[in-house]
Design a protein around this nucleic acid. Structure first.
Length: 406
RNA sequence: GGGGAGAUACCCAAGCGGCCAAAGGGGGCAGACUGUAAAUCUGCUGUGUUUUCACUUCACAGGUUCGAAUCCUGUUCUCCCCA
């Protein structure tokens, strides 16, 4: 199925420019297309997954994807994190982040022999000369028109710095640069980027006299309208050291019923017929579909072995079959605790509670179990013998953790 | 450049000398109910192994006071109006 049709079938098209012509172009032959990523953290997270999968789908459909690293824009701060202070990252940090991104993207995209490209806008934005920029690019932008853009409307009431105002222009310039150097004709991105992306097509039309296209993905939200990809621990990372394969599996295993279909469509390569079949059932039957979602998503990121292990561990943990050796585990040195450890200490050591106080709160609330039995007294001491044998700690219904002394 | 308003915990937002670790809402966590779902109800939600006690916190640095999130001075930042 051609790329555009596939995205449509999966419900991944929020808006696009000249849909019919774009559809034709994408069906007619190889198109070079891109999505930008801001290297503001040392790992990508679940929120990046739709665009990443989008590039991967494009490549599978025979197109050439470009992953644009916003190394230049990250240097001056990220305006989208509006509530927090704009972080100004050091060049070293940004370079390291880009390396991390490249590694992670390599699992989804084939970068060999120019089948996909990874570029950094720092390479060209850093060389720009202000006066030339004003003359060649700035003259093509109407401030009046920019101000009518949806993305600035809210900011006009909250306050908008010149820097933030310029993001649209920088992003448009990126598109133009990619068009000139790589013949890139399509930008993909989240629907919140629509106006910024449109600015790029207009700039290309004015400067190069050519048509370029943009296509946006719908913003995925939870059923109550919040952004997906967050848990109590914050973002769900693609880096296995930040979010373990088991946690990653569980994240997908636990998506709300009404998101299962859209998640399968967005985050797996399963054919839509299969997705529709899996989600035809309602109620408890959907659990099977959630398992498929969790397995597929984990496999794509961490490989089949890790996905199988996560599934096995999860099934064991939730069937009450006792502590599976595959659960997330903490090892402690037996010699350091000759007296044993109190439950409170165990919770902190295992990371189930961030502080003693929080550990007490959980125990007081009846949410802590050792080997499946609720423990009411946080001061209860677990003997060194038991620790050596290994215990299964559980927080609430879903968070299982194994702790063993060596 | 001039004038005005403001900065409170994860977010929004009350408080304007003691009864403030700080109302309310959201979010989050836990309990009940369930299907590892949703909705609903309940509890908790700065830190501390002295837990009707102690310590740290209301932009930052000082000051007044027996006592400050609240008053004063300076600094930084944000917004609004005028130029």
């Amino acid at each position: 199925m051609p790329f555009y049709e596939e995205l449509e079938d999966r419900g991944l098209v929020a808006q696009s420019t000249h849909p019919e012509e774009l559809r034709r172009r994408l069906a007619a032959g190889r198109v070079t297309l891109y999505t930008g990523f801001d290297p503001t953290a040392d790992s990508l997270h679940v929120g990046h997954l739709i665009p990443i999968m989008g590039l991967a789908r494009a490549q599978r459909a025979g197109h050439r994807p470009i992953a644009l690293m916003g190394g230049g824009t990250a240097l001056v701060g990220d305006p989208s994190g509006r509530s927090e202070m704009r972080r100004m990252l050091t060049p070293e940090t940004i370079a390291a982040n880009i390396q991390g991104f490249r590694r992670q993207l390599g699992g989804f995209l084939d970068f060999s022999e120019g089948a996909a490209l990874l570029v950094n806008n720092g390479d060209w934005l850093g060389k720009l000369n202000y006066l030339e920029m004003l003359r060649d690019i700035g003259s093509h932008f109407s401030v009046n028109r920019m101000l009518t853009a949806e993305c600035f409307k809210a900011r006009l009431e909250q306050g908008l710095s010149f820097l933030e105002f310029n993001y649209m222009i920088l992003q448009a310039y990126d598109f133009l640069e990619l068009y000139r150097v790589h013949g890139c004709a399509l930008q993909l991105g989240g629907d919140d980027q629509w106006s910024n992306m449109l600015a790029g097509t207009e700039l290309i039309r004015r400067v190069a006299g050519a048509d370029a296209f943009v296509l946006t993905y719908p913003l995925l939200t939870t059923s109550d309208g919040r952004k997906m990809g967050k848990t109590e621990k914050g973002a769900v990372w693609l880096d296995a050291n930040k979010t373990s394969p088991y946690e990653y599996y569980q994240y997908w295993r636990n998506v709300p019923d009404d998101r299962v279909r859209v998640c399968l469509a967005s985050f797996t390569f399963l054919l839509m017929d299969e997705v529709r079949r899996l989600t035809a059932q309602a109620g408890e039957e959907l659990n099977a579909a959630k398992e498929v979602l969790a397995y597929e998503a984990t496999m794509l990121l961490h490989g089949a072995a890790a996905a199988t292990a996560a599934r096995t561990a999860a099934r064991a943990a939730f069937s009450g079959a006792g502590a599976a050796a595959t659960l997330p585990a903490t090892e402690i040195a037996a010699a350091s605790y000759p007296e044993g450890l109190s439950l409170i200490e165990l919770l902190c050591l295992s990371g189930l509670a961030p502080s003693n106080r929080e550990a007490r709160r959980l125990v007081a609330g009846g949410g802590i179990y050792i080997n499946g039995e609720r423990v009411e007294n946080g001061e209860a001491v677990v003997s060194p013998e038991k620790l050596r044998a290994g215990i299964e700690l559980r927080k609430g219904k879903k968070v299982h953790h194994r702790l063993i002394a060596r």
